[in-house]
Design a protein around this nucleic acid. Sequence first.
DNA 1: CGTTGCTCATAAACCCAGCTTATGCCGCCA
DNA 2: TGGCGGCATAAGCTGGGTTTATGAGCAACG
Lengths: 309, 309
Amino acid sequence: MSNADEQAGPAVAGSLAHRVPDLGALELLLAVARLGSLGGAARELGITQPAASSRIRSMERQLGVALVDRSPRGSRLTDAGALVTDWARRIVEAAEAFDVGAQALRVRRDSRLRVAASMTIAEYLLPGWLLALRAQRPDTAVSLHAGNSTVVAERLLSDEADLGFVEGLSVPAGLDSAVIAHDRLIVVTAPGHAWARRRRSLAAEELASTPLILREKGSGTRQVLDAALGGLARPLIELSSTTAVKAAAVSGAGPAVLSELAVGEELAMRRLVPVPVDGVALARDLRAVWPTGHRPTGPARDLLSLTRG
Amino acid sequence: MSNADEQAGPAVAGSLAHRVPDLGALELLLAVARLGSLGGAARELGITQPAASSRIRSMERQLGVALVDRSPRGSRLTDAGALVTDWARRIVEAAEAFDVGAQALRVRRDSRLRVAASMTIAEYLLPGWLLALRAQRPDTAVSLHAGNSTVVAERLLSDEADLGFVEGLSVPAGLDSAVIAHDRLIVVTAPGHAWARRRRSLAAEELASTPLILREKGSGTRQVLDAALGGLARPLIELSSTTAVKAAAVSGAGPAVLSELAVGEELAMRRLVPVPVDGVALARDLRAVWPTGHRPTGPARDLLSLTRG
DNA sequence: CGTTGCTCATAAACCCAGCTTATGCCGCCA
DNA sequence: TGGCGGCATAAGCTGGGTTTATGAGCAACG
């Protein structure tokens, strides 16, 4: 990934943080866009009008682009400002997901809903669910513990969690479950790789005989792949996080096998390209789980209902 | 949108910026994750080791979660730290898109590639393309001008742009084009709306007879919808940006019609739900355009090749 | 078994970005 | 013609993040 970073590195000196306004400034910009007034935005964020004025101005200086048209009776975005605001909104939304996730990680004993989830689900799906939950039940304090299926089962059975999410092939003993979504493993490579230009689907044997960038044995992803190939997957390297696998794949180290969930962004940005595969069962269910008989109620039920569809 | 924001508002006092570490801290965390060392990460970012140490520590204090396990021979992420790092990566990636877009907006006469694009494309697709372009041709300085089809055509024909992108139904006169992607308008509502629970597809007449949240007449989106319905679309309100339409829809003002591109995130987060529609031609092509005969070469060709697929 | 080299932590001094308070100008409307 | 809402400017303060300087833990090696 070091490679990838240097390769995609700054065309201009200074890190991202020096070229991108901070979250406070971006929130302010969104508020200005929404309210049509610097002062109004300032009030909403609990700062004074001169603070807002100066902050927007310094953001314009930093970006080298005029963002708002100021007039004695309000402020409107310029065309460039509208574009910048939309890009800013992406950052703020990612920050909201970060925020709601981080709050759930903080261990608090007053949590009304204790969730245990597998890594992939916690990483990619849970923040969205938690945002939705907060939108309709603002007072539900949620705590989150991430671990593999075994850990999730333990926490549920010892009443340390109210609701769990797992992505394995089977449901741990003692738990009831409901399928909430489907996931699929896909083979990906960097755009430069030979497989990236393939049109014909890859056969199972070909996949099994090629060294791949993989998660370590025992991870949910690896289990599914090994099962699908009959335990034959050949590792090029084994890494202990989805992230590390992605980074290696992006840097061109070789083909990797990853959850569809994990690579959405990379595919959209063309940092990775999918390789079609044939005759390999790479689909898997994502399930909500709870102790047998203890059908979720209250906050757990609320969250569960958000994960459907 | 004010509604939506308040409703989804902070469960804790202070704005996002107070609860989410700033970009510099997140970049630092990613570097620590990648390099396995605070000092190493510090060196990479051009700061000193104590600065990195203190910054990570204050991030941990802010989040109330231990992120890295420090040992005399390096630092590794904790489980929670791995999760936080993944969420952080999302923010940083959004910031990279922001950065590359903002740089392109800055008017510079030394740009080697001048792009003109419709709003929707500039908002949702171009940053990804520009990142990919920068990854493989780091020295290409790009400038971007956003406007509707007419503006794009003007800039190309007056040699103020080298390559254009439009989303209309027809190609402006004097331009050659290539279809680079397909888009589809979809009907969306807030999750609370009656249509959100519909299973049966909506018929064209039903859509035409219901007041909708729409872009203003003349926008690409509106043109496609009007054409598909035979000019019959009934506005509930008309707004001048995709963003405003989304905001209104999210806040529950009514059903909206928007590009698939524009609502991906909202659908994933369940802030909006799609309404199935039948017998209405809401698909449209996204095209790259250039002056007739002047087939793109050099940087323009590089960019064009990235947009395929 | 000390030396060297990597790691991280702590302390003190500094600097600047962003905040507030105070004030002024401009345009609209009663 | 006041009054009100909007934005800009100026001066002073504060705190977070930075640097430099130093110390301490663990590992490998002669």
